[in-house]
Design a protein around this nucleic acid. Structure first.
Lengths: 209, 209
DNA sequence: GTCTATACCCGGATAGAC
DNA sequence: GTCTATCCGGGTATAGAC
């Protein structure tokens, strides 16, 4: 990382402190607006102080999401074990609507190619997609390892692409978060688990005979 | 259509004109920001003039999405024929990233219960879910009507709930729009068609024998 | 190197003139 | 009813105090 005027010891600590304040702010805010000034107040600073540490509001928020990602993979591991961890992570997300909203917001904003967070999101999705695809592929190769065995059957052969399954699973996850934000009765974890089950079951086709 | 007669005639016309200008602005803007002032300029007005006709920015944008919905159902019909129309509609969306972004943006913002667009989105999703569920159920009851026949098979029986399938299909659609905004190489229509095929194929289980 | 003070611009809202 | 004039809040850029 070639930061212009690099963060040194003390700076890194401050950055961390600011990120934590921002996380807290969003967690508390439900789905209300959070301004940079709000975050600044939490750390006893002015907005310009924060701007100094990050390059701007978007960069700060990107760092927040990156931190959340890091915390997540620390707890749930990488996406290698997509079966158990994935649903748990979703259930965990349901605890912090503010952060879910931040994620959706930023992701949409990052669509613009020269947005500060564009690369972060593009890379993040690329990573998730390939990791998930690998996991699905592996699981398909070794079926019936757990308490249940998916009964394979005559599903059209065009439906077995792991890369496609990964895109769909991630998409459904994001989309369900949206529906859940609007209607909290939806059980994201259950719905997604079911889809994951179906997708891996479909991918299980050693030979159609 | 109510005939433009009476004291509100001019107002309604102005509203329509503004909505069309906004649609055009978003369509042109790619995924860049669109301010109320931008829209105002297009109709030769000031921003305050526009805000007078709708109650605020959010209300205007809600009206824009509602208009787009109306235009969409006019062309593609309701979701009764979820097979053909759905993918086409998605492909059509791919032509206007600005509007897709607007949708995602607003939907996220509408999560807050007292957001002006909250009711609109909540109701919209309720409607779509139930319409799609009905369509899937119907299609499952009468399989193999077209050029292809889904080969039904031994998929776990817990996976046949039409309501669930509808939630998933919509979620995947929204989520893919997000991924597509970040990476335009993704073929939303193809991916979703494939999922729809799978979901209806799975729902096709007249009797497991 | 780190931060505050300040000043700027843009965007949305509001009151009141026509 | 419609819009102009004005205000206020949020993000950003710069200068300089510590």
């Amino acid at each position: 990382m070639t930061t212009p005027r690099g963060p040194y010891a003390k700076t890194a600590a401050k950055r961390q402190q600011i990120i934590e304040a921002a996380l807290a702010a969003y967690a508390e805010a439900g789905s209300r607006k959070v301004s940079v000034r709000d975050i600044a107040q939490r750390v006893g600073m002015t907005d310009a102080g924060i701007l100094h540490h990050f390059g701007g509001r978007e960069a700060l928020l990107t760092a927040v999401l990156a931190a959340r990602d890091a915390a997540g993979t620390e707890v749930y591991g990488d996406f290698e074990k997509a079966d158990a961890g994935y649903a748990d992570m979703l259930a965990q997300n349901a605890e912090t609507p503010g952060l879910v909203k931040l994620f959706v917001d930023l992701a949409a904003a990052a669509a613009e190619p020269d947005h500060p967070a564009h690369d972060f999101f593009a890379e993040r999705y690329d990573r998730f997609r390939s990791e998930l695809a690998t996991a699905i592929e592996r699981k398909a190769a070794a079926p019936a390892t757990g308490s249940e065995q998916p009964s394979e059957g005559g599903v059209p052969p065009g439906l077995t692409d792991p890369a496609w399954a990964a895109r769909i699973l991630i998409a459904a996850t994001d989309g369900l978060q949206l529906q859940w934000l609007l209607n909290p009765e939806i059980d994201m974890a259950a719905d997604v688990s079911r889809l994951a089950e179906l997708l891996t079951a479909v991918a299980v086709r050693p030979a159609v005979d």
